[in-house]
Design a protein around this nucleic acid. Structure first.
Length: 689
RNA sequence: GGCGGUGUAGCUCAGAUGGUUAGAGCAUGCGGCUCAUAUCCGCAGUGUCCGGGGUUCAAUUCCCUGCACCGCCA
């Protein structure tokens, strides 16, 4: 069985959200964009013409204020952050066809064009209203949200102000939208998110406020029908999907808009599932075809490589282990639509098991045998076929339709599992036929040739199927087995018939595609895992914690209150837990680390642990600290040492003992460890700066 | 506070329109092979399918409720 020949020409348009320029790129952005890339490459492989759009969103007060702080213009600030995204995508081998910025001239024109159109159609109206406004939050409050009549975040009384704004008559399209979703069951997928949207639509929709007076915010796109206002978020941002593909009269728009699909994370399904289709309807434009919604990566930082608190940011793992391994892990680990856990430990497990042991070793042993037994030349399949051949070939032919079916339904994880069935089958085939035995017997040369041919041909299948996921490795494998054709422009149905391997071509000598990785040193104590998860998260969102007993904690709420709550591409709490990529930090950020000179007054080994020591450290007060340094220091030699204690780290329980801080140390590549000490005898409790 | 989601093997997670022994990978143990990256192949397990109630001949799967965690909204 071969996959269906695609005779008619097909098109495919996939978009990511445009990312807001107030945060650096992180794992969430990377995942969405990689998924879009996989889809785009997959469709190309299937013979589609594709258009793949990503970009940045650059208007809004948040950007303006951030720019002011840095003493530059909003545009300059946006240029800078937008540049970070642009620079990242090539590193992730993202094959986007266009990168849109909401500050682009053509985008501004398109937004105004559509606003005018909807306004002329009578779906935008002007209304005054009054309310209690907190300048700190930049939002209105209703009475019952206030605490003692004050803003719960800023603890100041909001003032009553009157304001007039423009509203989009979204409610008018509610019934149409419900019907559209019911008539097109795949409009929002997976189903759980469609249900969520429908549940929301059971309540009456309110109209959408789409403007801000320039007196309050001026970094935005001016309303075409009122120069005193700029448009607020929705029309500004969502319309990028039109501008990016050449609306109103570009060729790409005509070609690709009818097949448009969006890809978003679950936190922004409302703007995309409700606001956007109604906006399009009002503008007289056909809605998109599919809204594809994925879940969240929960970053399990306690299982990220860390030694004494040095957590590796998820994105940096692509450099550590290689881009294709990174892409593989993301696509294999997450079931599309559901949340998944990201951890370095998990990634290393996948790399070792799936990539190094299964696939990498298969390629290596195959090429090695081809070189040893056949002089590296792909043989013409001689000898007789037997049942094991049939089984291998039928597995390969079964995998194909499964693969396309699963890829079409966004089941990437299963599609990869399907490919790995073939990897496993090939490994079994090798054991069963033992080419090393056949090679010993001159009479079995023909059979050897057939067996080797089947193995290498299976590698060609595998190499081709992984093109969307691991473009570099796919190319490497195919090149190694002598497939030098420019496969990037071939269609799957042309590539995938058994026997396509060029006889007589030379294979390359075996090499390591994926080196094995030493498993990360992670303490598997459950207490540690559970507690430190929370600690890390909270430590990130708490801005000030004093050392003294009368600890004054600023709530996480306040710390993030400045974040514009309506910016829908904000990645929820991920933004808080995520570490920066390693860019510059401000002095204010540094100041948040309360590091003190401490003197170790007592040290004992923690029972049942081979590397944890329980230390008592004097920093003006006694702190109990659990440190994983038992392999490098004996308790005795520690007493009296002047160490550096990170004093405002949220306490964590390790092996049942509460650790109230972290002793700083250095670890080198060879596993050596040394505590940071202070060379002079200064007063304990003094602060490092 | 309202709406929605999730809770399944040591770990990460699939799955069942209700029905014979509930699955995969990893980790663990034992056996085999030696072409290969100490890799590969075979075998072996283990589960109060979150707690409680209900519907049913039958529920882990449906309904109600409680708990925990997550998202959206206010």
């Amino acid at each position: 069985m071969t996959i269906e020949k695609t005779t008619e020409k097909k098109d495919y348009y996939i978009s990511t959200p445009i990312y807001y320029v107030n945060a650096q790129p992180h794992i969430g952005h990377a995942y969405t964009t990689i998924v879009a890339d996989v889809l785009s490459r997959y469709r190309k492989l299937m013979g589609y013409e594709t258009f793949f759009l990503t970009g940045t969103d650059e208007h809004g007060d948040k950007v303006k204020r951030a720019a002011e702080e840095k003493g530059i213009s909003p545009k300059e600030y946006a240029d800078e952050i937008s540049g970070l995204f642009r620079a990242l995508w090539p590193e992730l081998k993202i094959s986007n066809d266009y990168f849109i910025r909401t500050t682009d001239e053509d985008h501004i024109k398109v937004v105004q064009l559509i606003l005018q159109k909807v306004y002329d159609a009578g779906d935008i109206y002007f209304e005054s209203y009054g309310g209690l406004y907190c300048t700190g939050c930049e939002r209105f409050y209703v009475e019952r949200e206030l605490v003692d009549g004050k803003c719960p975040d800023h603890e100041v009384k909001p003032e009553y102000i009157e304001e007039s704004n423009y509203f989009f008559k979204m409610s008018k399209y509610q019934d149409w939208l419900i019907k559209h979703i019911n008539d097109n069951p795949e409009f929002i997928r997976p189903k759980r998110y469609k249900n969520e949207i429908l549940a929301f639509l059971r309540e009456p929709l309110e109209d959408l406020c789409i403007s801000r007076p320039k007196s309050r915010i001026d970094w935005g796109i001016e309303l075409p029908f009122d120069e005193k206002y700029v448009t607020y978020v929705w029309f500004d941002a969502l319309i990028n999907y039109l501008t990016g593909v050449g609306f109103p009269d570009g060729d790409n728009f005509k070609k690709f808009w009818p097949v448009a699909e969006h890809l978003v994370a679950k936190d922004i399904i409302k703007p995309h599932g409700i606001y956007w289709p109604t906006m399009l309807k009002a503008a007289g434009i056909e809605p998109y075809q599919h809204l594809n919604v994925h879940g969240y990566w929960n970053v399990n930082e306690s299982k990220m490589s860390k030694s004494l608190g040095n957590i590796v940011a998820p994105l940096s793992l692509k450099d550590k282990y290689g881009l294709d391994a990174f892409r593989y892990y993301l696509m294999r680990e997450m079931v599309f639509g559901l949340d998944a856990t990201f951890s370095e430990e998990g990634m290393v497990a996948r790399i070792n098991a799936d990539l190094a042991n299964d696939l990498g070793n298969l390629v290596s042993r195959s090429l090695s045998m081809a070189t040893k037994y056949l002089g590296g030349t792909i043989p013409s399949p001689g000898g007789k076929g037997d049942p094991s051949d049939d089984r291998l070939i039928s597995t390969a032919m079964r995998v194909l339709p499964q693969y396309t079916k699963l890829m079409d339904s966004l089941a990437f994880s299963k599609a990869l599992a399907e490919i790995w069935d073939l990897v496993g089958e090939c490994n079994r085939y090798i054991v069963e036929n033992a080419p090393w035995e056949l090679a010993k017997d001159e009479a079995k040369k023909g059979r050897l040739a057939r067996v080797m041919y089947n193995i290498l041909e299976t590698l060609r299948f595998i190499g081709t199927l992984i093109i969307p996921f691991m473009p570099d490795v796919a190319e490497e494998i195919l090149t190694m087995i002598g497939v030098r054709a420019d496969f990037s422009h071939k269609r799957l149905d042309e590539l995938m018939s058994w026997g396509g391997l060029p006889i007589g071509a030379q294979v390359m000598p075996a090499s390591q595609l994926f080196p094995r990785v030493d498993p990360v040193d992670v303490d598997k104590s459950e207490a540690l895992v559970k507690d430190s998860e929370k600690v890390v998260e909270e430590a990130q969102s708490v801005s000030v914690v004093k050392v003294e007993e009368e600890t004054q904690t600023v709530s996480a709420k306040e710390a993030v209150a400045v974040v514009d709550k309506k910016r829908w591409w904000r990645w929820g709490k991920k933004q808080k837990t995520e570490l920066p990529l390693g860019g510059l930090i401000t002095y204010d950020e540094f100041k948040r680390l309360d590091m003190r000179l401490g003197v170790v007054t007592n040290a004992v080994a923690v029972p049942k642990s081979n590397k944890l020591l329980k230390l008592t450290v004097n920093i003006g007060e006694e702190r109990t600290v659990v440190a994983g340094i038992g392999k490098h220091y004996s308790p005795d030699e520690l007493v009296g040492k002047r160490v550096v204690l990170l004093a405002n780290l949220e306490p964590a329980k390790l092996m049942g003992i509460e650790s109230q801080g972290m002793v700083l140390a250095v670890v080198d590549d060879e596993g050596g460890l040394a505590l940071v000490t202070i060379e002079k005898e200064l007063l304990p409790g003094s602060r490092l700066s």
